[in-house]
Design a protein around this nucleic acid. Structure first.
Lengths: 246, 246
DNA sequence: CGTGCGCACTTGTCTCATAGTTGTATCATT
DNA sequence: AATGATACAACTATGAGACAAGTGCGCACG
């Protein structure tokens, strides 16, 4: 029988795959550093890295420079309890968050936006939100021209509308639905055309006033989910909840 | 013993979340100052702040400059506390609701259900919910064999599990995601294969205990959407003057 | 008695420093 | 070609500290 020449980095990759899939490193926890693994498996860092990169190619793990290796593929879970920006929630869960502005301009509002905000001309900003470098949401925000007149493209890229607007926010109503990705969103979110997406619409009101901000969010279905904490399920019919659309 | 790599600020965030949710700091009451927490956890103010900001992103706490950190309060919990059974909501909106049981039996639980409920054998009920005669949800419910042993097929057809189970329900956690309809669900819901659906998973716990009921809901995307009312924490914060940290 | 001012304390936001991590080379060895 | 050894750059989490800005409170002063 011929001696099979084992390739060390594949052995290590198999071993690590076993450990990761076995749940040894739960979500959020880091894998041992390359240096530690190097010691544990008596292999050089080069070899350990090759193994880890093989697993990254499979989508099992991922790494950030200066941070470490971690189990990948956990969906972004958005707690749906309070009025917060997605960016804040991402930062809070330790992810890197950026925005890429697609377009920025003052336009005549689409019919529905006109009806909700009660104005004709609006600032419309389309952008893509990235989580750890991957596209994670396509967002369109509309705000009345009067309020948005002071805003610049650079400002909108760096901070959220919630931070920028010079008003006190009163609350919001958000709807969550499912749809199929159209071609434009599919390209932006790097998913196949027709794959399921979560579509949300959020109408934010001024404290004690009417609607001042309207936004549409499109999340890829495989990466995102909302999570709702229900302290007392026996309470009955609510203003919020599931709604049948005609 | 191998050293587990952790991220300090996440540890502190978890610990603080535990303390806040455990009711150690009642609503409106101040948390210890960043300096105190820094000393208590032997971490720098930077790290403590990162933890607190993570909790703020979740909406659990908030802060005001020169004042302190405080629990964001019960006031916001109520509106969301009422996502009751789907049937109750339908009845409330004046629609006729029925259930059609697809199958009813005691089986070995799927892996995930086993992990959540912590039991091996379960009662599994699959059904379709109808609104005004049209299918609008495919539901699968799992409950531990011990609890479901007394239930009959006729019973689950007529009443909801919430009504039937002889325990006091404590709360639930529900996730909402998007997916594509597989063939089986497509037939049941009378929609094309691959069309977008809302997929929800609800884990209900016994009062003061662990998970006792797990359910999966599949709604056709074109007919259903969730609507959520999001109050703003700032609006409900008690004004200054309340300063009660031992 | 009331009012303004300062003091102590808080969060918000910087800077600088350090240790540990991944990313990416180069060169030698088997 | 796979592996080992090494070096360095870029990045991250964390620590320590300084300062600005906001808040609450009590005290001196009018």
């Amino acid at each position: 029988m011929r001696q099979v020449r084992t390739i060390r980095y594949r052995e290590i990759a198999d071993e690590l795959r076993r450990r990761v899939e076995g749940g040894e490193f739960s979500a959020g926890r880091l894998l041992p550093s390359e240096a530690e693994l190097s010691g544990a498996y008596s292999a050089s860092r080069v070899t350990v890295r090759k193994a880890l990169e093989a697993l990254r190619a499979e989508g099992l793990v991922d790494a950030r420079q200066g941070f470490g290796w971690f189990v990948a593929g956990e969906t972004v879970r958005q707690p749906l309890a309070r009025l917060a920006t997605i960016e804040a929630q991402l930062e809070g869960s330790g992810r890197r968050s950026e925005r890429r502005i697609l377009d920025f301009g003052f336009v005549r509002a689409p019919a529905r936006v006109r009806r909700v905000l009660g104005v004709d001309k609006v600032l419309q900003v389309r952008r893509v939100n990235l989580a750890d470098g991957d596209p994670f949401a396509r967002v369109t925000v509309w705000c009345p021209e009067a309020l948005g007149a002071e805003l610049s493209r650079a400002q909108v890229q760096q901070r959220s509308f919630y931070d920028l607007l010079p008003v006190t926010l009163g609350g919001a109503v958000q709807t969550i639905g499912a749809a199929a990705a159209d071609e434009r969103d599919a390209v932006l979110l790097e998913i196949p055309v027709g794959s399921p997406v979560l579509v949300c619409e959020r109408i934010t009101s001024e404290l004690g006033g009417g609607a001042i901000l309207m936004a549409e969010y499109v999340f890829p279905g495989h990466r995102t989910e909302f999570i709702v904490d229900l302290p007392h399920p026996e309470a009955s019919i609510a203003p919020s909840g599931l709604r049948l659309v005609e």
